[in-house]
Design a binder for these strands. Structure first.
Lengths: 197, 197
DNA sequence: CGCACAATTCAACACATGATGAAAAACGTC
DNA sequence: GACGTTTTTCATCATGTGTTGAATTGTGCG
């Protein structure tokens, strides 16, 4: 936590690089891109700011390093789609929760969403994420009128993410995953295959 | 748009103060609190940065001035609740859309949400907004288990706000209000009074 | 041991930002 | 028309930030 006083290489073999990356992830996840300062990240890792640059280069490079998450969205969604439309709402939700509730993945995703929500004013989310990544995959699940159904699914899933992770609204953040699936799953199913007004 | 060159008061009677406030609202709404600089606001209003301080004081003061919205949430929600639980989902949604789709109100609300989502890391939204403002009002609508139903409603409404206004997801942002009500209203109704798993 | 290399800090720069106080120009009033 | 007031800009400061290059200390290899 506190900065070191002596100069030069430290004894032992501490993986300082990993600690810096973890501190960066945490800060980006909590305060977004602009709210994160390299000095703060360095202080949280007990390290000089120059070391951050030594390892990761610019602040932008550090950010993309923090975004690196050990998850392939297509691999996660493929089995959901493969099993067909029956019960797809519940399966889809369970897959999402499985990823977001994983502590190894969550900070990277949170950093991503926070920055997309504000620093980018939604640009990438609007132009690439839903239309290119999520949309085509879900297209295999919806009965018809994909152009209406997919945004509806996206709106409920986005709301869940924001309520449960971004602002951590008390009852939503602590609700067991099974309860979330049981309560919101049917709604997703309705958006995917139900009767549209 | 461009800055003035000559000094002193301008001829005519332009309401410069209002222009500065409008520029500030727009910037806060689009880029959030941290992303907004007083210099940029001044430039957008065609004015010297010092004038912004002259009229509004600090950046924080300017921000709260930009948040001032001509809407009393209780007055909007009261009739929704007064009419009872039947069709409350649709009425609730229509009331929300009426406020958010109003161009005079939207920038202030957007600025609010963007800053709450990131600059405050959700603090106020979590501790005051939903529990204190929205929660008690909606409590008059839910059948039972308000502690579960209200967060569910909040998650869907939040998702709608994020999809339609914050990131402006294409099909959701252009969808006519009536269609939104017709498609998401029943879901809200279900969250309010339906069968919970 | 000696030496290349990696890890780490120090000191400093350039720049953007929020803020301040004084000066200039137009207005309103007597 | 003189004068106080309001509106507006200019010049400037202090601070925080990303970034850089040199200096220092430990590690590993021959």
């Amino acid at each position: 936590m506190t900065a070191r006083t002596s100069r030069g290489r430290r004894p032992g073999a501490p993986d300082t690089r990993a600690e810096v990356l973890a501190a960066a992830r945490a800060s980006f996840a909590e305060k977004g891109f602009r709210g994160t300062t390299i000095r703060a990240v360095a202080a949280a890792a007990g390290v000089d700011p120059a070391l951050v640059h030594h390892y990761f280069g610019s602040k932008d490079d550090l950010f993309v390093a923090a975004l690196e998450i050990p998850v392939d969205p297509r691999a996660v969604l493929a089995p959901v789609v493969a099993a067909g439309p029956d019960g797809a709402g519940e399966r889809l939700l369970r897959a999402f929760l499985g990823v977001w509730d994983d502590p190894a993945v969550q900070p990277g995703l949170l950093a991503m969403v926070r920055s997309l929500l504000v620093d980018d004013a939604g640009g990438r989310l609007r132009e690439a994420f839903v239309p290119v990544v999520v949309g085509p995959v879900l297209a295999g699940l919806v009965a018809d009128r994909a152009d209406v159904r997919i945004p509806l699914v996206a709106s409920q899933v986005l709301g869940l993410i924001v309520a449960r992770y971004v602002v951590a609204l008390p009852p939503m953040a602590q609700m067991p995953a099974d309860d979330v699936v049981a309560r919101i799953g049917p709604v997703l199913q309705h958006y995917l295959t139900g009767d549209l007004a």
